[in-house]
Design a protein around this nucleic acid. Structure first.
Length: 328
DNA sequence: CCTATTTGACCTTC
DNA sequence: GAAGGTCAAATAGG
């Protein structure tokens, strides 16, 4: 196993949901604003009611999109269920959070496990008969169990470095009933092992990494290198796409974003940035990285101060990006 | 020979 | 007692 390749999820449906949730977020912010004024004005109360109705409708629609895409997920790719580590969550409970607490299938007789699930995702394998994706770690199978009500047995894996390095990470892999080439994978615990030489050797070449990142991010340019990056790539817990991990030298003038989850500012030019995946970072010149990642044609750019480049990376923590920009 | 997988037995929890 | 999770001896494969 471990020879499979993550297939893209098309991105279209995800992007729709992202757009919908973005509007929900905006409405909630407006609601919060008007709620402060609501005690003094009856028109604000009416406004709040209207906003609540819109939020409910949008949320319903988003949930519907997710549910329908899950149902139609035959052969499709990666579904990342509410697994983002707490530190990365914006504090809003996910409507899917129930799912992560119930690995694989709901079973009233199933014993409760200690709440240490770290990740639940659905992955598909190319070829159909191979195991799910190689997630960058080496695993050793230590058991298999037929599960009541499931067509396929569940495999139990632990980190190969459990004995040598005391790494306690484990995962469970099970084919879904609907589509045998689609696997449910539950990860337990965090890897504490050092990546072996073999794993390090799997690191893609810089150009490959950038190409992969380019395929996984929707990046737009606007005037003055204004860019927007939204992660759409399938990801594993170990390798979340990261828009920008760090900027060096540090920003000349970080600017507070009008939207809390966004970050933008002026970067000195030349400037080194680190992008890529959590375990596979790539550091390069900002301009080079941006041009490598850009998928939308650039607007004609007005003259800017050659010593600075303005950049803008949209940051959506719910989509598994670790961080947008590290302000000094 | 070494390492990984298989599989029945055993353990834990409900 | 049932179901899920883990252990460890037997086996397979390089």
């Amino acid at each position: 196993m471990e020879g499979g390749v993550v297939q893209g999820n098309g991105g279209g449906r995800s992007m729709q949901v992202v757009a919908e949730l973005g509007r929900v977020l905006e409405l909630v912010r407006q609601l919060e604003m008007h709620m402060h004024a609501a005690s003094q004005s009856s028109s604000s109360v009416e406004l709040c009611r209207g906003l609540v109705a819109q939020i409910i409708a949008l949320t319903d629609r988003s949930i519907g999109m997710v549910m329908s895409s899950s149902a139609a997920a035959a052969g499709a790719a990666v579904e990342h269920f509410a697994d983002t580590p707490p530190a990365l969550l914006s504090g809003t409970p996910s409507p899917l959070s129930d799912v992560s607490d119930q690995p694989f299938r709901t079973n009233p007789k199933k014993r409760k496990t200690t709440a240490r699930w770290t990740s639940h995702m659905r992955v598909s394998a190319t070829g159909g008969t191979e195991g799910p994706i190689d997630d960058g770690h080496s695993w050793r199978k230590y058991g298999q169990k037929d599960i009541l009500g499931a067509k396929h047995p569940r495999g139990y894996y632990r980190c190969t470095h459990r004995n040598s390095q005391g790494c306690t990470a484990t995962k469970q892999v099970q084919r879904t009933d609907d589509n045998p080439s689609v696997f449910d994978v539950v990860y337990h615990g965090e890897h504490t092992c050092r990546p072996a030489a073999a794993a390090a050797a799997k690191r893609p070449h810089a150009q490959t990494l950038l190409q992969s990142l380019s395929a996984g991010l929707t990046v737009h340019t606007d005037n003055n290198f204004l860019t927007t990056a939204v992660a759409t790539a399938p990801r594993t817990p170990e390798n979340r796409p990261v828009a920008v991990q760090s900027v060096s030298p540090s920003l000349a003038s970080p600017v507070a974003s009008p939207v809390a989850s966004d970050s933008y500012g002026l970067a000195p030019s030349p400037c080194q940035v680190t992008v890529g995946y959590r375990d596979w970072p790539y550091t390069g010149d900002l301009q080079e990285v941006v041009s490598a990642l850009v998928t939308a044609p650039a607007e004609p750019e007005p003259a800017i101060d050659p010593d600075f480049m303005r950049y803008y990376f949209e940051f959506d923590p719910t989509f598994g990006m670790d961080q947008a920009i590290l302000f000094p």
